[in-house]
Structures are given as C-alpha cells and as structure tokens.
Design a binder for these strands. Sequence first.
DNA 1: TAGATTGTTAATCGATTAACAATC
DNA 2: TAGATTGTTAATCGATTAACAATC
Lengths: 220, 220
Amino acid sequence: MEYREISKIVIPRSSHYCRYLGELTEEGVERISSNELGTKIKVTTSQIRQDLSSFGGSGQQGYGYNIRYLYPEIVKIPGIDRQHSVIIIGARNLGQTTVSYTGFGHRGFAIKGMFDISPGLIGLIIRGIEIRSIDGLKIFIRENKVQTAVLTVPKTKAPEIADRLVDAGIRAIWNFTRTDLVIPEDVVMGNVHLSESLTRLSYRISSVYDPQEEKKNALE
Amino acid sequence: MEYREISKIVIPRSSHYCRYLGELTEEGVERISSNELGTKIKVTTSQIRQDLSSFGGSGQQGYGYNIRYLYPEIVKIPGIDRQHSVIIIGARNLGQTTVSYTGFGHRGFAIKGMFDISPGLIGLIIRGIEIRSIDGLKIFIRENKVQTAVLTVPKTKAPEIADRLVDAGIRAIWNFTRTDLVIPEDVVMGNVHLSESLTRLSYRISSVYDPQEEKKNALE
DNA sequence: TAGATTGTTAATCGATTAACAATC
DNA sequence: TAGATTGTTAATCGATTAACAATC
C-alpha cells in the first residue's frame, strides 16, 4: 500500500468513521458496503471508497468492508489506540462534567488529575480524581508525564493558564474556553467552542425557516 | 448589493467571525483590516475579504472595516439577533452544566425548561429553571412555542426522545449524545460530538508527534 | 495628495463525483 | 458462474489564492 498524506479536510470525516464503526463493532455487525455506510452517515458512496482506500482500509469486491478488519485500521489513523495522560484545569461546573466524561477512556486518555485555584475546591475528590492547587501544576505535569490538558477555566483566566501549560511542556490543549488562545506551533490546540456550535445551529435554523431567505433562495 | 447563497463551508468560518468580532466589540476596538483579522484567526487576507464581501459587509479602502458597522451585519447571517425558546432534555450532569451555560442568552436562546425522567430530579430548580417530568414534554413545547431542544440524555435514550421531540413539533436539536440521530429533513440537527472532537485532537497529536508519521512525511 | 486597503476578477489548486474495469 | 461492490482514474465542480484597479 502506498502512503498518502491525509489532508486536513478528511480528519473530521475520519473521526466520524471511527465513531460509527465503533458503534457497529459494539453491535456485532460483520460487514458494511460503502453504499450502506454512506447512507447512514450522509457521505457519498464515492467519497467513502475514496477515503477508506486512502487510509489503506481494504474492502472486498462484491462483499464490502469487513468491520473486524476495517475498524482497527481506521482507529490507527487518529492514534486513539495509543495512551495519553490528561489533566483538567478548572474544577467547577464544566470541569466536573468533563471528569465524568467516559469518552476519555475509550480513546486512550487517562485522567491523572484536576486543578483549580479556589481553596474551597482543592482537596475534593470527584470520580476518584483529586482536585489540586494550580500552584503544583508544573511539577505535576513533569512527574506524571502529562501531555494533554483540558481547559475549562473562565475565559479571562485562559491565556495565562495556557502560557503556564506550554511552559510546563504540555503538548496538546483541549480548549473549552470561549477565546482564541495563542500558543506555539508545535502545541496542538483543539477548540470545542460551544458558542460557535450554537451559532452554526442558529444559522441553519435561519436558513431553513426564515421566509426571507426562502424567498431569496427561490429567486436564485 | 447582490445576494449570494452562502455556501455550507463558510458557516463555521462566519461563526468564528461572529465570535471574534463580538470580542472586539466588547473591547471597544473601532476598526480592523482584513490583514489583522486574518492573522488573528488564521485565515488568509484574501479569504477574509472574499467572505466579508459575500456577506455584504462593506469595508472602506485605505481604512479597513468599521467594527461597529460590520458586527451587526455579520450577526444577522446566523440570525443570532433573533429570539429562540429552548428546552434541555436530560437534567443530570451534562444537562445541569448546559443550563448554566451563559452562551444561550448572548445568541437569543432563552431557556424555558428542563426535563428528566428521574423522579429524584423532577421538581428541582437549577439556575431558576425547574426540572419537569418528561411526560409533559409535548404539551410544554406547544404551550411555550419551543423551537429548539438540547439533548443531554444517555445515548440509549436518545433515539426515542428525538422522535418525541420531532412529534411535538420541535424545529432544531442541539445534540450532545454520542450517536447519529435520524430525523426528518426539515428539522435542524446540530451535533456537538465531543468524542469526535477528542478523536480529532488525538489525530493531530499523532501527526505532530508520531515519529513514524514524521518519517513518512520526510519521505514524501 | 500619497498610502493603505478594499472589492472583485481571473488563475490555481484541491476536493468531490462519476464511471467502469477488476475481481471477490 | 453471475451479481455485487470495490479501487482507481478521469472529469467536474467548487473553494482558495493572487493580483490589481478602484478609491477612501
């Protein structure tokens, strides 16, 4: 199989394949054709085949894809078969919800600790994870070889904390704060940006239901 | 100004413009050039001008864009200047975090109620919002003219609840559950899919730090 | 006025789709 | 074998970038 660089645009799509094929694996489904898969996740048959073939996931003519072989191939691409250590910064509402999120474990992310600035929270144990003072952040990251941090602090605190994380040698930040953080090129930043997700929803509500838009569309 | 259909691909970008220009507005910044804006949010100058011009947001040669005029224009596109009524289905961990999310108000979404199945939760009031029994869902939606529902229930319950929401006439679902829900074409589905966000992060960590990938890249 | 910066056109680049021979 | 469905090539479509005249 020839190696092909995976372009930026297929990353979200391959994440979707990952999740859906994971579901099928759990359900014990054995095979799926590009046609079925495409219908289910709303991608054209052509694109499915193009993508899977570029990942090196090989199907079989007349049969489709054997999920038992395909899934482990797909999973290798984002590397979720590997182990990561993660900490959560900000142990209030959102941080506590995040620590309960079961998705970490399934993707090889092990939560090592939580940090907060508030004395009232420090020392509490949530889902078996102790909330620590942020003063010990740097040492903790070094000692536990933490590569990834989840940022669930208020927006105003975010830039300073991001700097401290970078300084402590963190390699990836999963950012739940509502701001664009500036970090070095070699640190990976994954933005959740719920506010933008809601804005996108709003956009689509408008374009489906706004009579003015409909009129405009009709005139096209 | 000529009307141009806004293509699917610019929706996330325009949501980003929205958020960032909102920040600048709060900070009292008066003007910005396509160059500055592009540097800040990592979009090329050309694309900024192409996008803003397609939205009808007009700048001024030699000056740039006046944020006071531009922002209200941009905000009109996703329709976040309009009012929506929203309910939250699932009042456990994630649901309770969601009700505390201040982003709703800023985008014209007013939370009208929360729903859960668990008798232990029903009747509780969180951030001024009462948790109701899901039995009254349909009537509540009708009476309060709710168009949008946030879905924060366990994955197994999600398909059934989605059906009930559609049946009750909901027009948009903001889906936090880890599954692809099947709904009619005219109901808007916005998927958050944190699991995919984490997978994408993992992917990028791999491609930046995996020595094997680097080797492959070097051979290209 | 001179400098800056837009809006827009044309050129490039890349992604998606269509089609079909290969083959299970 | 016949039918189904892949993998891949070529064609199309659309998005991004470059460039520059217009003009504040």
